Simulated scan of single mutants.
Amino acid sequence: MQEKKQPYGTVLIKADSILKYLSSTDKPQSLQQIAKETELTSSTALKILDTLQLIGYVQKDEETKKFRLGRSIIKYANKALNQTEIKDLAQPFLEKLREQTTETVHMGILDQSSIIYITKLESFNPVSLYSRVGKAIPLYCSAMGKSILADQTDEQIEVYLNNHTLVKKTENTITTKEGFMKEIHEIRKNGYAFDNEEHEADIFCVGASITVNGKNYGAFSVSVPKYRITDEFITQIIENVLACKRGIESELG
């Protein structure tokens, strides 16, 4: 009978059991309760908690002496969701969007003052776009970027505008604060954003953000060569984009 291989670093498994327990409850927990639920001795649980607290995975209330998840692990969890899980979760909805429109579909995540492409589904039609996974584009002149900014407060957008020059990428790029805020109000009203040749000449995009309970998970868009655009086609794309947005956000809860 083959001997079962023991994992290296069993303390990590014990730490994981503590983190799992803390993530399963909304309230801070005492050392005694944590030790009981994880089947650890109080002394072992305390040593692990002290280390987790040191690296920011756990926070301790000095008055109540109770523990809860720390900001560091929450930051990493959110980053992982943005980069990996949201991509996998959204994939079937994005594929359906491409089938409906037959055009190029992008998905991106917010990275400071840019959108980073994390997915690109190529158009079924002849088209040449300079976009690629990993490329960063500005927020102010892209459908995805503007839709994410529209989910922020006026004060947050004001900070963004004060710290970023609206460089004229094409003849259609919005370069004034007044014009940009007018655009933001339209996006909030409609639930989607346009990039009318604002980032790249001859390319029209319809995009929407993915925001649930005040947290943004990124955005997606449909990109179409301007010569294929008609009023009827724009209406169809808008309907498809809004349906895709509802589907993804519903999956996120």
Rank of each mutant, 00 (worst) to 15 (best):
M1F: 09
M1I: 09
Q6H: 04
P7S: 11
V11W: 14
L12I: 10
D16F: 13
S17A: 13
I18F: 04
L19M: 15
K20C: 06
K20D: 06
K20I: 09
L22F: 06
T25V: 15
D26C: 07
L31K: 11
L31M: 10
L31D: 00
K36T: 01
E37L: 11
E37H: 11
E37P: 02
T38A: 03
E39T: 12
T41C: 07
S42H: 08
S43H: 13
I48K: 06
T51H: 08
L52Q: 07
Q53R: 14
Q53Y: 07
L54M: 14
I55C: 12
Y57A: 08
K60F: 00
K60G: 00
D61E: 10
K66Q: 11
F67C: 03
G70T: 07
R71G: 05
S72P: 02
Y76N: 09
Y76C: 05
K79P: 00
K79Y: 06
A80Q: 11
A80K: 12
I86D: 07
Q91P: 01
P92R: 14
L97G: 04
L97S: 04
E99L: 15
E103I: 07
M107K: 13
I109T: 13
S113Q: 13
I115D: 03
I116G: 00
I118Q: 13
T119A: 12
L121S: 04
L121E: 02
V127S: 14
L129G: 00
Y130H: 11
S131W: 10
R132P: 01
R132D: 07
V133M: 07
G134D: 10
S147Q: 06
L161N: 03
T165M: 14
L166G: 04
L166C: 08
N172W: 06
T176D: 04
T176G: 07
K177L: 02
K177T: 03
E178P: 10
K189Q: 08
K189G: 01
G191F: 10
Y192S: 01
N196I: 13
N196C: 10
H199K: 12
A201S: 13
D202P: 08
I203A: 07
G207L: 09
G207D: 01
S209D: 09
T211S: 15
G214E: 06
G214S: 12
K215D: 01
K215C: 03
G218M: 08
G218A: 04
F220H: 04
V222Q: 08
Y227H: 10
I229E: 01
T230D: 03
T230V: 04
T235W: 05
T235E: 15
I237E: 02
N240P: 08
R246G: 02
G247I: 03
S250F: 05
L252R: 06
G253L: 14
